[in-house]
């Protein structure tokens, strides 16, 4: 029983860690987008408003990927272990 609970907790923690790998992408993506926007504004300063507006929404879309990962990681750390252990205990009690 203890071994099964240990495996569940370990797998949840491992899954959360793996999910957070997706958090690396948005930072790099946003950085590249802003760098290109700087370049574009440098070439055409009059388009600053349009570029900033479009980029803001682009950044939001990019950031949501990281958010998905964050939410999954939080659920795996704080919600899933309790429910899975409860499920295990109830299954064992039924046997």
């Amino acid at each position: 029983m203890e071994l099964a609970i240990g495996i569940i907790l370990g797998c949840c923690a491992l899954g959360a860690g793996l999910a957070m790998i997706a958090g690396i992408g948005p930072g790099i993506g946003e950085g590249n987008a802003v760098a290109k926007a700087c370049e574009a504004i440098g070439r055409q300063p009059e388009s600053k408003g349009a570029v900033t507006s479009t980029m803001l929404f682009g950044c939001v879309i990019a950031e949501t990927t990281g958010l998905y990962a964050l939410v999954i990681a939080i659920l795996l750390i704080f919600v899933a272990p309790g429910r899975l252990v409860d499920l295990l205990v109830s299954t064992m009690a039924g046997l």
């Binding site: 950085g31 802003v34 570029v51």
Partner: peptide
Amino acid sequence: TVQRAVLKEEKEAKQAMK
């Protein structure tokens, strides 16, 4: 952050966003 970053140099902007 975007408002400030677009006024910086490319490398600095990238760093600021990260």
